[in-house]
Structure formats: C-alpha cells, structure tokens
Amino acid sequence: MLYFFFNLTLSILVPSLIIISTIILSWRTDFDREKFTPFECGFDPKNSARLPFSLRFFLLAVIFLVFDIEIALLMPIPLCLMSGLSISIIPTSFLFFLILLLGLLHEWHEGSLDWSS
C-alpha cells in the first residue's frame, strides 16, 4: 500500500514540476515595443509593402529554372551510353535535345530572352 502511494505521489509530482519549470523558463520579463513590431528585412513597416516587380525578370527566372531542370535531366545520358545500359537512349536523348532546342528557339523568337527591351 505504501508503494502505491509513493508511485501516486511521484506520478503527480514529477509532471507538475516539469510543467511549472517550463512556465517559469518561458516567462518573458522584458516587454519591448520593438519586439512586437513586424520585421520586414529592414524596411519601415509603416510604408506600403507593395513594391513594383519586373515581370520580365520573373519570366526570365522561370525560363532559367525550366532549362536548368532540363540540363539536370540530361546529365545521366553519358553514363548510360558508356555503360551500355540501353540502345534506345540515343533516340530518346536526341528527341529530348530537339524539344529543348525548339523551346529555346521559341523563347528567343518571342523575345523573352531579351533583357534590354
């Protein structure tokens, strides 16, 4: 019976001490007005947060990401050719190069790659 009361007391006391210690440790004593203002990378939050954004830059960044991912997809082709894994890798890679080249020519003809205009 004494063992039961010891376990009951211990099971109530330990979680209570943990909860009280976390409350004490997380208590904030210094309330600073500057800490409660929104942080916007050094900009004054009282001014307008909307800045003009260049859509040409965004389009060029998206085109760069697309072509960068396509180049990453092309990287294993020489390893596959050297190891002789598959003979169908040559027509597949040629088709992929052709689609990549046609996309580049389309973007060039459309004027999306011209940064100055």
Rank of each mutant, 00 (worst) to 15 (best):
S83W: 03
F4T: 05
K35A: 07
I77S: 00
L105H: 03
R33N: 09
F43R: 08
S86W: 11
T37Q: 15
T9F: 11
L98Q: 04
F53W: 07
A49M: 08
F97G: 14
P52K: 04
I99S: 11
I77L: 05
I89C: 04
L95F: 15
L73G: 11
F96K: 02
M1Q: 10
H109I: 12
S117L: 14
I71W: 14
A61V: 08
F96A: 03
S11W: 09
I20A: 13
S16W: 04
L65Q: 02
A61R: 11
F53Y: 10
L55Q: 12
H106A: 14
F39P: 00
L113D: 03
Y3I: 02
L98T: 09
I12E: 10
A61L: 10
S21I: 06
A72N: 02
D30T: 12
L25H: 13
I71T: 09
E34Y: 05
I63S: 04
G111H: 05
E70W: 10
L105M: 11
L59K: 01
S16G: 09
L81Y: 09
L81R: 05
I18H: 07
E110T: 11
I99W: 03
V62M: 12
E107K: 01
T29F: 12
R33I: 11
G84F: 03
T92R: 08
I90Q: 06
M1H: 08
L81F: 12
T9Y: 07
L113T: 12
L59Y: 07
I77E: 01
L60G: 08
F57Q: 07
S11V: 09
F31E: 09
L8T: 09
L95R: 02
S26V: 06
S16D: 03
G103F: 14
C80G: 07
C80W: 03
F57M: 07
L25N: 13
S88I: 12
L104H: 01
E70T: 01
G84R: 04
I69H: 00
